[in-house]
Computed example of a mutant assay.
Amino acid sequence: MATSTQTIAILGAGAWGSTLAMLAQAQGHRVRVWDRRTAPDLAGVLQGAEVIVSAVSMAGVRPLAGAVQKIGIPPQAILVSATKGLDPVELLTPTQIWAANFPNQAVVVLSGPNLSVEIRQGLPAAAVVASRDPWAATQVQRALSSDRFRLYTSSDPIGVELGGTLKNVIAIAVGVCDGLQLGTNARSALVTRGLAEMIRVGSRLGARPETLNGLSGLGDLLATCHSPLSRNYRVGYGLGQGKPLGQVLAEIEGTAEGIHTAPVLLKIAAQHGIPVPITHEVQLLLQGQTTPVAALARLMERQLKSE
């Protein structure tokens, strides 16, 4: 589906960055991958890039954006953020960090229900590319879409980004529920109320509710809460089985961003007066200040209200 061959720089060689590189190469693009551990020549990777995709973990976004800013990129280059998380320093999303460093650059967010293992196996998937610049979103859509990876465009970047970020916290809670073997009824209620919590936060921060009910919100939530491939779900599942957090993290590969997102989300919710009961219980559990059984019990005992 790509209209022309482009030079695409993928910054980050983890599971998701490597998968995006594979997708871009399959479309015939010239792909360069940067990894801070094995390829320190960032300037060489960026040179002549028309699309620059950031797929590093949340902790790496701010230093990477600063490094790219020092090097400089062509004014027509499109920046794409594929990171799901929140910055603990300024409580910003990854795209907001990139936009602050490159105020005159087109910035796009890519997010959706994308388990990288399945995509690398050739299984079909879909995602959303969102930007305030419709041309930039369309360019990325055309560059990366294929018969196995369908991309939709959106003009609600904050909604798309928050959907992919907030669902990680809910996935931990659902994993706890399953680890406790509380059944399908409890899991369904938790996923549904988790989505309501995501929409509450997103709406207050400027997202459109319909975006969070779409692929990058509900779709990503369902994928993350229903697959053992999800690191966040596995964290919750292990905690639900009574394992200490350190042991759970040692058993999984990669970063479970929900662990880092929960405390930042609580700060944002406190600033805006947004009730986030599920996130609150997840954070208490991550800090070892409650047990899985007590956390779920408090959620069930909350004051009765209309849906």
Score class of each variant (00 low, 15 high):
4 S>F: 00
145 S>R: 00
267 K>T: 07
302 R>V: 03
244 P>R: 10
90 E>T: 00
35 D>W: 03
120 R>G: 12
74 P>A: 15
58 M>V: 10
50 E>T: 10
296 L>P: 08
6 Q>C: 06
93 T>P: 00
290 T>L: 04
270 A>V: 01
20 L>Y: 08
9 A>H: 06
170 I>E: 02
91 L>F: 01
176 V>K: 02
52 I>A: 11
96 Q>H: 08
217 G>E: 01
33 V>I: 15
78 I>T: 11
144 L>C: 10
273 G>H: 04
302 R>E: 08
240 G>D: 15
204 R>I: 08
49 A>Y: 09
16 W>E: 08
242 G>T: 11
63 P>H: 06
194 G>R: 06
254 G>M: 02
234 R>F: 09
235 V>F: 15
260 H>N: 15
82 A>G: 03
148 R>D: 10
25 Q>S: 12
112 G>N: 06
160 V>R: 09
5 T>K: 12
45 V>G: 03
63 P>L: 03
213 N>D: 11
190 L>Y: 07
169 V>M: 10
210 E>D: 11
304 L>D: 10
168 N>E: 13
197 E>L: 05
128 V>L: 08
92 L>F: 01
166 L>I: 14
290 T>G: 12
71 I>R: 02
240 G>I: 12
37 R>S: 13
221 L>I: 13
139 Q>M: 08
279 T>L: 05
246 G>N: 13
5 T>Y: 04
3 T>W: 07
289 Q>W: 14
74 P>L: 13
92 L>Q: 15
229 L>N: 14
100 A>P: 02
289 Q>K: 15
89 V>S: 10
273 G>Y: 02
62 R>H: 03
197 E>G: 09
284 L>K: 14
209 P>H: 12
7 T>Q: 05
288 G>W: 06
107 V>C: 14
42 L>P: 05
43 A>E: 11
71 I>D: 02
55 A>F: 00
157 P>K: 09
123 L>F: 10
25 Q>H: 05
146 S>T: 11
256 A>I: 12
46 L>R: 08
119 I>H: 11
203 S>F: 06
251 E>S: 15
202 G>S: 01
130 A>C: 10
171 A>W: 05
280 H>N: 14
155 S>G: 11
111 S>Q: 09
181 Q>T: 14
211 T>K: 07
268 I>F: 09
272 H>I: 01
58 M>T: 13
105 Q>M: 01
67 A>R: 02
87 D>S: 04
256 A>M: 14
264 V>Y: 05
160 V>F: 09
68 V>F: 04
1 M>H: 13
217 G>F: 03
179 G>K: 03
215 L>P: 00
46 L>D: 05
68 V>A: 09
229 L>G: 13
43 A>H: 07
225 C>I: 10
186 A>R: 06
212 L>N: 00
279 T>P: 01
47 Q>W: 05
168 N>G: 12
286 L>A: 00
8 I>Y: 03
229 L>C: 13
185 N>C: 10
197 E>R: 09
